[in-house]
Nucleic acid binder design. Structure first.
Ligand SMILES: Nc1ccn([C@H]2C[C@H](O)[C@@H](COP(=O)(O)OP(=O)(O)OP(=O)(O)O)O2)c(=O)n1
Ligand SMILES: [Mg+2]
Ligand SMILES: [Mg+2]
Length: 877
DNA sequence: ATCCTCCCCTAC
DNA sequence: TAAGGTAGGGGAGGAT
């Protein structure tokens, strides 16, 4: 605050913005600074960096990169189908990756509990010494300190992570018979079936030896340890890695797979995360055998067809997914939901920020040599009752997230991508109608991509390709004897034959470019070796750097990898319009009706329509951004592919552009007369407008969920899925027929103010017996002041007495008491008592209580969610 | 049936 | 105090 005042006097440009990050309305370079410091951006952009690496290698070989990747894929396919009944799959992952790099850089940290984070923020990775205390990725450093008082905070070293990553991939790619599937910056799957002998016994030890040598090479190269799992499938290999950590390797044989699985919790299965784990727990399913006891039909009715099948297979370790190379991305985007702050008066700044984000995406799309035809725009809106304090500093806090999408015209002549993206985003921002002071995050995504360099078009691929990745997850591996007993070189030959026989469109993979000759296996320089050669300079340099731990020059490296230079927007080109209120969205269309009629609509037909139909049409046409200001070009670009253009011929599939006005009119009319649709039944005013005799929101809220679902199902003439009403937050801001408000844990905190004298400064000695804690629950919403302070004293002294040796009985006493209060809906009391406990837990000598309090708090919040669908505004210790 | 939009969930 | 991104699979509802 006074910072602003003194700025004019002396304000040396802060070189350390990262130490004192400013929100969007105070930092014009927010986007650059933020992405340079975000760990999630770093790990999230791995795929983009990896992709460009592959393109570079392919360019060097003068072949279509898709062919390279295909050859690799075919190796995976072959190994699955030929040599032996059992594939040999390896999953390999660096141990506490970021933390290990920190130790590498500063060996004095070895053996110590360390956590990688910005000063006091969220922990990204921590050493195994720290994990012994319960510290995890995602823990706040402050909380980590409570668990582990000696925990040290170490800063990020993104360039070093990138270098180590390159080194391990160089090792993975150094064997031509091993196929590689990149997973993340520190992790990959390998199919080593072809790399080891056919004899089963020999191959088992061969697998172990090969994996050990890979891990040795990794350590020699990076100075960091990796762990690995070996199994008959990706799933099993991955689970084995976890068990092998740290610095170990583990093989699970086919015959032991189920026994091993039976020792696991459902939450340990990849794909079952926090939410699904909770849903299963609510059905009393916590272990893998319990999950296996559910029938396919049960799982599918609960989770849907595909997901149900996946969970069913997970429980049985059925997993035939091949190890295959990454496919080109289907979407490219950027998002920021931290530090986004504007005042009501800063709408212009907000738009500038949105345009910066659009520019960022444009730059990333262009860097990838891609072009997309669809823009997805996303905004985080602060929840109405969200407390302004108590959340992560400058975090988004409790939010509703909205997304809107639009088509952009296919490379309308000469219009820079940047412009189109900006225009689309601003337009969609207007559609959403958020006020700038409630904006907490912005996301921009470009999808429906095609790649110039790869001569690859996703739409084409989808049409031509028969298999989607998930499909293979459903099959079990098919044993086959083809290729058995062949030498490696013979198998390579077979692999090349197989590739030659493939129609180039097979699997939706692109075509061989003119210069490429023969299958990749024939080349003297196999792709894998080429990878290493191509990057040898960087690899060597990295090796050197990794060899000298204490090293300074890491600062500029990341920029080499991802060029995030941005052109300053020319403000003149941008018209700032007032953001319309939500309700005005249609009204706004009236003013500029002429201009806003989407190209491709029949102007005359349109004007002859009734006014309300016109409105209806315009409303739905916000999906066709092309309708926007400068009238778009006709989509003649579709036809030209031959020359300098980067876009592969889009084949057929007329891109979903505005349909003829007449058809639209038909649809609008039908909808008007027709049945209740989703957006309509979700919005009560809409239901009423449509003449449905419908109750008001209050009545809906009080109706049992079952009845509500049934009623709406009837109105719709089609059964309604319960979960849609329960958890889907679509259009949450309308007056709801459902009960989404306050539904989820991220929704409103219930703020219950503390009673006046909580700090309990009295020091009077009370006889404290556990009987006092067991005393009856008084009536009335709040404690009489006296009562509370008496209770507080008793509680404090009791807690202190047992603090030396807190037994589970002690904990249960507290937990049972607050949970009972909660069940009786004495929320003020719950909050008062929890705050008391928290207060005391913070005192000197009460350390043993900290973890117990936090666990009790978790239980209270969980119970509160189940019972009342909100959270109490209580803090962790 | 299949496509589209918006939303949810997961992994690193 | 503090850097809560990125991309994929998939589901439901609706339009065709
Ligand atoms: N929530 C997370 C998870 C991971 N990472 C980063 C830091 C990790 O070091 C790196 C790799 O993720 P891993 O899941 O492999 O975790 P670690 O390598 O740290 O530990 P482990 O030994 O369990 O693999 O990604 C992160 O920033 N935030
Ligand atoms: Mg790891
Ligand atoms: Mg990992």
């Amino acid at each position: 605050m006074q910072e602003e005042d003194t700025k004019a006097v002396a304000d040396p440009p802060k070189p350390d913005f990262w130490r004192d990050p400013r929100p969007t309305n105070e930092n014009p370079n927010f986007v650059r600074d933020y992405f340079a410091s975000s760990r999630l951006h770093f790990i999230g952009s791995f795929r983009a960096r990896y992709e460009s690496m592959m393109v570079a290698v392919a360019a060097n070989l003068a072949v279509n990169p898709r062919l390279l990747l295909q050859s690799s894929a075919e190796k995976g396919l072959l190994s699955a189908k030929t040599t032996r009944a059992e594939r040999v799959i390896v999953h390999i992952d660096m141990d506490c990756f970021f933390a290990s790099i920190a130790v590498k850089k500063n060996p004095a940290l070895a053996g110590k509990p360390i956590a990688v984070c910005h000063g006091g923020g969220e922990i990204s990775s921590c050493s195994y010494e720290a994990r012994k205390f319960g510290v995890r990725a995602g823990t706040f450093f402050r909380d980590g300190r409570k668990l582990c008082p000696d925990l040290l905070s170490v800063p990020y070293e993104f360039p070093m992570y990138e270098e180590a990553s390159l080194l391990i991939y160089a090792i993975f790619y150094s064997s031509p018979t091993v196929s590689v599937e990149a997973v993340s910056v520190d992790e990959a799957y390998l199919d080593i079936t072809l790399a080891i002998g056919d004899d089963r016994h020999a191959s088992q030890s061969g697998a172990d030896a090969l994996v050990r040598s890979l891990r040795d090479k990794i350590f020699a190269s990076t100075g960091c340890t990796a762990s690995a799992g070996i199994g008959p499938s990706k799933l099993v290999a991955r689970l084995a890695t976890k068990a092998a950590k740290p610095n170990g390797q583990m093989r699970v044989r086919q015959e032991n797979v189920i026994a091993y699985l039976d020792t696991l919790q459902v939450k340990d299965l990849p794909g079952i995360g926090w939410r699904t784990g909770r849903r299963l727990r609510e059905k009393s399913i916590t272990t893998v055998p319990q999950l296996r006891a559910l029938s396919l039909a049960e799982l599918q009715s609960e989770f849907g067809g595909r997901q149900g099948q996946v969970f069913y297979n997970l429980a049985r370790a059925l997993d035939a997914r091949p190890v295959e190379p990454l496919k080109p991305r289907k979407s490219i985007g950027a998002e920021a939901s931290w530090g986004v702050r504007f005042t009501k008066e800063e709408e212009d700044k907000a738009r500038k920020f949105i345009m910066d984000m659009a520019d960022e995406v444009a730059a990333r799309v262009e860097a990838a040599g891609a072009y997309g035809t669809k823009v997805v725009f996303k905004e985080y809106k602060r929840k109405k009752n969200a407390s302004m304090v108590g959340y992560k500093h400058l975090g988004h806090g409790p939010c509703v997230v909205f997304t809107r999408s639009a088509r952009i015209q296919t490379r309308s002549a000469g219009r820079p991508l940047k412009e189109l993206l900006r225009q689309a985003c601003i337009r969609l921002h207007n559609d959403l109608g958020l006020h700038s002071d409630e904006l907490r995050g912005v996301g921009v995504q470009m999808t429906d991509l095609s790649f110039a360099d790869l001569n690859f078009d996703h739409a084409e691929a989808t049409t031509a390709g028969s298999t989607r990745r998930i499909d293979s997850f459903f099959e079990t591996a098919v044993p086959s004897s083809i290729g058995n007993g062949l030498s490696i070189s013979q198998r390579r030959k077979a692999a090349n034959e197989a590739i030659k026989d493939l129609p180039s469109s097979r699997n939706g993979l692109g075509q061989v470019s003119n210069q490429s000759k023969g299958g990749a296996f024939d080349k003297e320089e196999p792709f894998e070796v080429e990878f290493v050669k191509k990057h040898s300079e960087r690899i060597e340099a990295s090796k050197e750097r990794m060899a000298s731990p204490i090293d300074e020059q890491t600062e500029t490296h990341l920029a080499d990898i991802e060029d995030e230079d941005r052109i300053e927007p020319a403000p003149a080109q941008v018209e700032f319009q007032r953001a319309p209120q939500v309700k005005d969205a249609v009204g706004k269309a009236h003013e500029s009706r002429e201009l806003d009629i989407p190209k491709g609509w029949d102007r005359e037909v349109f004007h002859n329509l009734p006014k309300d139909l016109q409105d209806e049409l315009l409303k739905s046409s916000s999906h066709a951004i092309a309708a926007g200001h400068p009238p778009p070009r006709e989509a003649e670009a579709v036809t030209d592919d031959t020359s300098a253009h980067r876009i592969a011929p889009p084949k057929r599939r007329r891109n979903p552009k505005p349909k003829p006005a007449a058809a639209q009119a038909e649809r609008a009319k039908r909808r008007k007369a027709g049945q209740v649709t989703m957006t309509q039944f979700a919005d009560i005013s809409n239901l009423k407008k449509r003449g449905h005799n419908v109750l008001d929101a209050e009545e809906f809220r009080e109706m049992p969920l079952r009845d509500c679902v049934e009623l709406l199902g009837d109105l719709r003439g089609k059964p309604l899925n319960v979960r849609t009403l329960q958890t889907d937050r679509r259009n949450v801001e309308t007056e709801r027929t459902g009960r989404r408000e306050g539904e989820e844990d991220e929704l409103e905190d219930l703020e219950i103010p503390s009673p006046p004298s909580l700090s309990s400064d009295s020091d009077g000695s009370c006889s404290m017996t556990e009987m006092v804690l067991r005393q009856g629950f008084e009536e009335g919403p709040v404690y009489a002041e006296e009562e509370l302070s008496t209770y507080a004293e008793v509680l404090r002294v009791w807690m202190r007495t047992v603090a030396g040796d807190v037994k589970s009985g002690h904990v249960e006493l507290i937990r049972g008491r607050v949970l009972e209060l909660l069940r009786r809906k004495k929320l003020e009391r719950v909050c008062s008592e929890m705050r008391l406990v928290r207060l005391f837990v913070g005192e000197e000598g009460m350390g043993a209580w900290v973890g117990h309090y936090n666990r009790i708090l978790d239980d209270v919040q969980e119970e509160c969610r189940v019972l009342y669908k909100f959270r109490l505004a209580l803090r962790k210790a």
